[in-house]
Design a protein around this nucleic acid. Structure first.
Lengths: 139, 139
DNA sequence: GTGTTTGCAAAGTGTTTGCAATTTA
DNA sequence: TAAATTGCAAACACTTTGCAAACAC
């Protein structure tokens, strides 16, 4: 039943602890939904209704809080492809995305499939936090 | 008075006509604000208040409509960096962006400063509409 | 005149917030 | 018990919509 790339329960617990987050019922249940399968790109509303489907009582506000807390803890990465909706990616390693405009669906592109060269340097005192590449697919 | 890279009035008119858009007072005034200087990254609210400052009477709804019509006509490009706010870029040539997270400010990166290699092909029947590279600057 | 465009205010969307009640350590 | 967390509903910011009045051709 456990998907090939699920994260062990203990690892999730450790991540929560080291982020100073108590392992509450809601956070554990959401973590299970998020990390029991691979490479999910999920919105808050989607995760909330998935929780409902699994009889996990959790409010939408808590889903938002939890997604942001997990993101701050490095367990998720936020992706913005489209004004007015955020997706959260369970794959936090270096990679990029196809965005299928027709369906709104996201798909990973491995980090080594893209190379960015000759980047101008950022102003002194600042640094590059991340480079997002979004390949927009139409049709 | 005219900035170095402004677009001639006649070109704007032709673009509007070929998109089937009547050159109304509002559209012409907004076009002037947008294209009289170079490489602007502007939100609907910003353009609306700029119009107010210049005594151009135009409603926010019309600013939104106009920005979308200009985008459909290829005169603008929409950029999404951040859920809940769209920017419109007056530079429609091939290029990418620095996004300064602290200030919310955008800056162009010339297209030839970035190279994307070995891209996986999109599914049959679809095509790549655009590749967006956003370099997120923190600090 | 005829069809397009506009402005307004209302509705819609996704997200955040304030605070009392609950839960955790 | 003290501090963190939750749920709810209300507030929010941005965007879109519906429709009558104004406008372009």
């Amino acid at each position: 039943m456990t998907a090939a790339c699920s994260r062990p329960f203990s690892q999730v617990l450790d991540r929560l602890r080291s982020a100073g987050l108590r392992p509450t019922r809601q956070r554990l249940a959401l973590a299970r939904l998020l990390f029991d399968s691979c490479d999910r790109h999920i919105s808050a509303e989607q995760l909330h209704s998935e929780a409902m489907d699994n009889n996990i009582r959790v409010s939408l506000a808590t889903v938002y809080n939890t997604l942001h807390q997990f993101t701050a803890a490095g367990m998720l990465r936020e992706i913005v492809v489209d004004a007015g909706r955020s997706y959260f990616d369970t794959n936090t390693s270096d990679h990029h995305h196809f965005f299928f405009e027709r369906s709104g669906h996201l798909e990973d592109i491995p980090g080594d499939m893209v190379s960015v060269t000759k980047m101008p340097s950022p102003p002194p005192g600042t640094h590059i936090r991340r480079v997002d590449v979004i390949v927009r697919i139409a049709g």
